[in-house]
């Protein structure tokens, strides 16, 4: 990307904001967001990330699932943390999502539209950026 002007920055912000709101990035409407701060990585978030990529492929969902990384969600006592966004379902944050839970996550939540027992956590705070 080349250097921007003020107008270009504003245009970029608008289009990206819409992307974020749509939550439909690159035509994929399901998102899995893995917390990858130092705390998450120390607890195995990288392995979880890889296992999720694997399971999504195994279940033939590459076309509709986007797996992303983010920083620390603040829930350090239950790392690794993973947020899952599926259209028509409430968005939830799961804790203690080690690599061996990836299969259950994909099969039960993404395919079966059921939430996982014993992993859901409360979102720590409301989002001030959503007015």
């Amino acid at each position: 990307m080349a250097k921007m002007t003020l107008d270009e920055l504003r245009a970029l912000r608008e289009s990206k904001r819409k992307d974020l709101e749509k939550r439909d990035v690159e035509g994929k409407d399901i998102q899995i967001v893995v917390g990858m701060g130092t705390c998450g990585i120390a607890a195995g978030a990288k392995q979880t990330f890889d296992a999720l990529v694997d399971q999504v492929q195994k279940n033939g969902l590459e076309g509709s699932v986007l797996i992303r990384q983010t920083g620390c969600m603040g829930l350090c006592y239950v790392e690794p943390t993973v947020e899952v966004l599926v259209p028509g379902m409430p968005t939830v944050i799961y804790g203690k999502m080690t690599a061996d839970t990836a299969e259950e996550l994909v099969k039960k939540h993404l395919v079966g539209h059921q939430l996982l027992d014993n992993h859901i956590l409360d979102r720590p705070a409301a989002d001030i950026m959503k007015k």
Partner: peptide, 10 residues
């Protein structure tokens, strides 16, 4: 909780 500093974290 109220996130100003951590608005984008996570």
């Amino acid at each position: 909780q109220f996130r100003v500093v951590l608005r984008n974290c996570g």
